[in-house]
């Protein structure tokens, strides 16, 4: 039985359309125009226990709305959802004790107090026995290397440090299901990497179920085997990372390391050339033609080394997004 089951979930917002200018604002006092924004349209999804799933999609695609529905913060217009057997928007305490939502854009820690005080508050709210609380806190602080910052007011922490504290605050009660909404947003590469490493180690150890949204492909590559692409409130693709690469990129990137004797001008007119930095030449080839093209080159030229790669994930995903957007407009 899947741990998360979503069926035909739909949520739309009514948004006030403000016109430009003073007269329009005055008019807006009496008569307002609203536009319905369909944040999530008829989404169905199943997640098994212990899965680490990424939600990918452009801004406003409905990723965060889906996580908010799953955590019961907002009510849907239509559809059903069950997480560990609970309906999230009933907000039962039994359910709320067993999951956590971390939002990179919002913070739940007391701004003027050391993070430790917020942890203690969560301990009492979740009713975690003191011994367990101490053990979990020490373990998490150790993994994230923030023990020395525990007594510093949150407002004096860097963004990366604060995010680590947010994660600890969300994990103290050992949730079975974890929703992460852009946990690495705004962080530098090193801090991002630290958090990725932590999440990976933590998930492997606890075997909990994690849903992650992120804009950073590195997060996805490092953590998730399964990727769900959401655009315009609809699921556009659900599958492994490799499938996405296959589906949205027909090309491979070939890098040749030419022997010194080869005349480089011969490659000047190669179609889909990406980069020439002697002795390396990088170009793009359609997947099914890789064999033919390479054997042709190998027959005619001396080549020291060949690397055939998938194109960068960023590029693939951006293709996927554009395809999804286009489909949305047509549909």
């Amino acid at each position: 039985m899947p741990i998360i089951e979503i069926k035909n979930l739909t949520k739309s917002y009514r948004v006030y359309q403000k016109q430009e200018g003073l007269m329009a604002s005055v008019k807006g006092l009496f008569k307002r125009e609203y536009k319905a924004v369909h944040a999530v349209k008829d989404i169905s999804l199943e997640v098994e226990e212990g899965e680490f799933v990424a939600f990918l999609g452009p801004n406003g695609a409905g990723k965060t709305t889906t996580l908010k529905l799953l955590s019961g913060v907002i009510n849907p217009d239509k559809g059903t959802c069950s997480v560990m057997g609970y309906t999230p928007w009933e907000r039962k305490n039994q359910y709320r004790r067993r999951f956590s939502l971390v939002m990179g854009q919002k913070n739940q820690l007391w701004w003027d107090l050391p993070a430790l005080e917020s942890f203690r508050l969560n301990q009492h709210i979740y009713g975690v026995p003191k011994a367990d609380f101490d053990a979990t806190r020490d373990q998490l602080c150790d993994m994230l290397d923030v023990t020395r910052l525990l007594n510093q007011p949150v407002r004096e922490l860097s963004l990366g440090e604060r995010m680590k504290m947010e994660l600890i605050a969300a994990l103290l009660h050992k949730p079975d299901v974890l929703f992460l909404d852009e946990p690495t947003i705004g962080l530098d590469v090193i801090a991002q990497h630290k958090i990725q490493e932590f999440l990976k180690a933590y998930q492997q150890e606890q075997n909990n179920t994690v849903l992650l949204t992120s804009h950073y492909m590195k997060d996805i590559e490092a953590l998730c085997k399964r990727v769900v692409i959401i655009a315009n409130g609809e699921i556009y693709h659900d599958g492994s990372l490799t499938q996405i690469v296959d589906k949205f990129s027909g090309d491979k990137v070939v890098t040749l390391h030419l022997a010194d004797s080869v005349d480089r001008d011969a490659f000047k007119d190669l179609p889909n050339l990406i980069d020439v930095t002697p002795p390396k030449i990088k170009f793009r080839v359609q997947r099914e033609k890789v064999g033919a093209v390479l054997s042709g080159i190998l027959n005619s030229y001396a080549v020291d080394d060949i690397v055939v790669e998938d194109p960068p994930l960023e590029e693939v995903i951006s293709n996927a997004f554009s395809a999804a957007e286009a489909a949305g407009k047509v549909g």
């Binding site: 009492h124 979740y126 009713g127």
Partner: peptide
């Protein structure tokens, strides 16, 4: 477990009061 893990309203309130005072 749920009985054991139920929140203590008094503890939560005292923590609020204490944190506010510290702040």
């Amino acid at each position: 477990l749920q009985a054991r893990l139920s929140p203590s309203y008094l503890h939560v309130f005292l923590t609020f009061a204490r944190n506010s005072l510290v702040r």
